[in-house]
Amino acid sequence: MNSSNQKDQALEFLKADLPRFSKLYKECFLAVGRGAMLVYAKSALSKKLPNNHNYRTRQEILELFDAVESKEKLGGMIDLYEPKEEGILVLITDYSYATYFVTVNF
């Protein structure tokens, strides 16, 4: 399985429980503000749903990346999303730690 396939499978698992996932995003946003959910694809594929410990504030999530381009792209996504309707997911795969920034619509 390559990183793209792993990403797709992890997203399918997360979509299956979108109401719970949506509620989690909203609770985390209200508790700490704008940020993103950090999920490892391997955890999702092991049927482990994210929880509030997977949510990172804008500053916390941006500190994980060295590349300026990645920080700018993710920072822009976080600044512009509508928390009542969507959330940002940072999905990290097992393959060279390929990372995908995904907007999740509720």
Rank of each mutant, 00 (worst) to 15 (best):
R20T: 09
V32S: 12
S22K: 11
G75I: 06
A16S: 12
K71A: 04
L24E: 04
Y40M: 09
I61L: 08
Y25G: 01
V32H: 03
N52I: 11
K71Q: 13
K15Q: 11
V32P: 00
S22L: 03
K26P: 00
L38Y: 13
K47N: 13
G76R: 11
E60V: 10
L38K: 12
K23D: 09
T57R: 07
A36V: 06
Q59I: 13
H53P: 00
Y25L: 11
E60H: 11
V39G: 01
A36G: 04
G33N: 06
L62H: 07
N54I: 00
R58D: 06
E69Y: 11
E63A: 14
S43F: 10
L62K: 07
K47G: 00
F13Q: 08
H53I: 09
P19H: 09
K71S: 05
V68K: 15
S22Y: 09
P19W: 06
V39N: 04
S43I: 01
Y40G: 06
L64G: 07
C28I: 07
F13T: 09
R58H: 12
L30S: 12
E27R: 15
L14P: 02
V68L: 14
K26H: 05
A36C: 05
L30Y: 01
K15Y: 05
L18R: 11
E60Q: 12
L14A: 01
Q59H: 12
L38H: 13
K23C: 04
K48E: 12
K23W: 00
A31Y: 10
S46T: 09
E63D: 14
G75L: 06
V39P: 04
C28D: 06
G76K: 11
F13D: 00
C28S: 10
L24H: 05
A67W: 10
G76E: 09
E63Y: 13
G33R: 10
F13V: 14
C28T: 07
N52M: 13
E63S: 15
E27S: 14
S43P: 00
F65N: 01
A67T: 09
V68W: 08
K71H: 04
F65D: 03
G35R: 06
Y55H: 05
K26I: 02
A31G: 01
L74C: 03
A36Q: 04
V39W: 02
V39L: 02
E27I: 14
R58K: 15
L30H: 11
S46V: 00
S70T: 05
V39R: 02
L14D: 01
Y25V: 03
R56I: 01
A41D: 04
K26W: 03
P50E: 01
R34L: 01
D17L: 10
A44N: 09
K47C: 05
E72I: 13
E69L: 14
E60F: 08
S43W: 06
I61Y: 01
E63I: 10
G76N: 13
G75C: 05
L18Y: 09
H53W: 09
S43V: 00
S46R: 15
N51I: 05
E27K: 15
F65H: 07
L62G: 04
